[in-house]
Nucleic acid binder design. Structure first.
Length: 575
RNA sequence: CGGGAUGUAGCGCAGCUUGGUCAGCGCGCCUGCUUUGGGAGCAGGAGGCCGGCGGUUCAAAUCCGCCCAUCCCGACCA
């Protein structure tokens, strides 16, 4: 492709709006333009990257036998009412009406649609398993779109759905996907980690996220420094250290005037934080839940959400305590009023003779014990993991954390949708059974931004070869010079003949402008032809990512640059 | 939703406090000449309902009100 024939509106100055580096560079390199908050157009260069990523995804999906289809973005409300998500999904769902006032939405995801498609067609276990995928725009009216393509309201997603006859079959589809995803992220050149994840609203139990490591990431992952344990912050846990057991002492009430927080009470009573149990009160729907947590620990609200079965809950505000007849700062499990759902973090089970709120103003209870002073019906892991804590999987390992960008997520869904929608098949024994489903997503447009977050320098983008918009760029420094032009044209033809995706900067711009643009758009290999080259007979080859420069006789420049390019591909493949 | 900020030429900004030759600068764009190894120089030029609506005033980019858009922060850890 010739630069002059491509619309690449590069900018010298960065847009005031952009906050993170990928957003700035996508804009400056002329790859995207904003249409509205969280809504973007892809320009030719940006679209090429998108297509390169899509191609890798298609190859890996096809390789595991997933079949590409295309479902509509526009979906009728009926199927969402059937699954129960028309009301569950909330304002994030983009709802629209047709001229006859019928409700539709712009699909935020496609479980309902694909289930309704399959249930009409796939009737027998003989037709299973089936896995479908599509690459399509998704619509989510995010609370706060931000960071350009990173959190957009309209974005490109690859979503896949497997329909399986039983759990073992689902396991196979899921494992295939897991491997395909790993290959996709490897081939795109990402530094990523696959981690245990929470399932959230979508349902199901087993799920893994594919996290691209980047400082600007909105998510946190924890991983072990000595084994392969890795989990998103939503589900990460830690090995509990059991404190020495003490014989239960009789409870005594102590006066703690004005001392409410764990640190205050701990200091005031001279009791270590680890011997305090705090009682956090949440309101959800029309109920109240109290969470018992060891002092010094934080509640992981994702874990709580999974237990409560809703994301709509909040910690009680100062004013709300009176309404529900509780004493702020002094709530405790002993003598807790009726009607409060008590959930304890499993670490609390290890404690003896601890301190809790007394459910009255300015007082705490000391030497409290479970089973003696109160009972707990509901236990769970509700802790927020922290860096440096012991690994839950191996002995001696420590948890490290990193910021990351969620780029892929795979779920074993089970029958959440098939049951709700009455989608079933006839099994081998003649019984009707709901499909066992899995769903598998990749944020394709987000990957474009994530790649830049991971690969850039002060001058611009450093595309991994596999997803770069072009593979080799020829930079003739003086286009109006006949010898330079002729040389550049010959190199260009030579590269094209070898099937290389080559970009020829055939503009009559100054050398400075051409260098700057080439570095900005980040094509992995540059061949520079200037007056010097004509004198010396050597072309200069520069690797964008490492800034390594080498010289090659012009006659060999095609072969040499292709050799360098192949090496870059091999580096990504880990060879 | 709550809080903060911004909106002036395609992009980046100044001007607003102290209403009145304040419609300005840089980049980009157009024309011509000269240039060409890290965003060239000179000369000339085009381009703006100063986010929208309403108000105050003899007079509004500037003061007031409402609205819209965009960006940032936050979701209360007893």
């Amino acid at each position: 492709m010739r630069f002059s024939k491509l619309f690449i509106p590069t900018l010298k100055e960065e847009p005031a709006e952009a906050e993170i580096i990928s957003h700035k560079l996508l804009f400056r390199a002329g790859m995207v333009r904003k249409v509205a908050s969280g809504v973007y157009s892809f320009l030719p260069l940006g679209f090429k990257v998108l297509k390169k990523i899509e191609r890798i995804i298609r190859e890996e999906m096809d390789a595991i036998g997933a079949q590409e289809i295309l479902m509509p973005a526009l979906q009728p409300s009926e199927i969402w009412v059937e699954s129960g998500r028309w009301s569950e999904y909330g304002p994030e769902m983009w709802r629209v009406k047709d001229r006859n006032d019928r409700d539709f939405c712009l699909g935020p995801t496609h479980e309902e649609l694909v289930t309704s498609l399959v249930m009409g067609e796939v009737r027998s276990y003989r037709q299973l398993p089936q896995t479908f995928y599509q690459i399509q725009m998704k619509f989510r009216d995010e609370i706060r779109p931000r960071f350009g393509l990173m959190r957009a309201r309209e974005f490109l997603m690859k979503d896949a759905y497997s329909f399986n006859a039983d759990l073992e079959d689902l396991e196979r589809s899921y494992t295939d996907m897991d491997r395909a995803y790993t290959r996709i992220f490897q081939r795109c050149g990402f530094n990523f980690r696959s981690v245990e994840a929470a399932s959230g609203l979508i349902g199901g139990k087993v799920s893994r996220e594919f996290m691209i490591l980047a400082e600007s990431g909105e998510d946190t992952v924890f991983y072990c420094d000595s084994c392969d344990y890795a989990a998103s912050a939503d589900v990460a846990t830690t090995r509990l250290i059991e404190p020495p057991k003490e014989a239960a002492r009789p409870t005594i009430k102590v006066s703690t005037p004005g001392k409410k927080s764990v640190t205050e009470v701990s200091a005031f009573l001279g009791v270590p934080q680890e011997k305090l149990v705090k009682t956090l009160v949440y309101r959800f729907e029309d109920s109240i839940a109290a969470v018992l947590m060891r002092g010094g620990r934080e509640v992981n609200e994702s874990k709580l959400s999974a237990i409560l079965g809703t994301t709509r809950f909040h910690l009680l505000g100062e004013g709300e305590f009176r309404e529900v007849d509780l004493v702020p700062g002094y709530v405790g499990p002993v003598g807790l009023r009726e009607g409060v759902r008590l959930i304890a973090d499993d670490e609390v089970a290890l404690l003896t003779n601890f301190v809790v709120g007394a459910n009255e103003e300015d007082a705490h209870l000391k030497d409290v014990n479970i089973g003696v002073d109160f009972q707990v019906e509901e236990w769970g892991d509700l802790k927020l993991a922290e860096e440096g804590e012991p690994c839950p999987q191996c002995a001696g390992g420590k948890l490290l954390s990193a910021k990351s960008i969620e780029a892929g997520h795979i779920f074993q869904l089970g029958t959440r949708y098939s049951e709700a929608m009455g989608a079933s098949f006839v099994a081998e024994n003649g019984e009707r059974k709901p499909y066992i489903m899995g769903c598998y997503g990749i944020g394709v447009s987000r990957m474009v931004a994530a790649a830049i977050e991971q690969y850039h320098d002060d001058a611009g983008i450093l595309w991994p070869v596999s997803i770069a918009p072009f593979e080799i760029e020829i930079v003739p420094l003086k286009w109006d010079d006949g010898a330079i032009r002729k040389t550049a044209e010959e190199l260009y033809e030579g590269l094209l003949a070898k099937g290389i995706e080559a970009l020829l900067d055939d503009r009559s711009e100054s050398p400075g402008k051409k260098f700057a643009d080439a570095d900005l758009i980040g094509i992995p290999v540059q061949i520079i032809i200037g007056p010097r080259s004509i004198v010396s007979g050597n072309a200069e080859i520069k690797v964008r990512s490492t800034a390594e420069r080498s010289e090659a006789p012009i006659a060999d420049a095609v072969d040499e640059s292709v050799r360098i390019l192949k090496n870059l591909f091999r580096a990504i493949a880990g060879e």
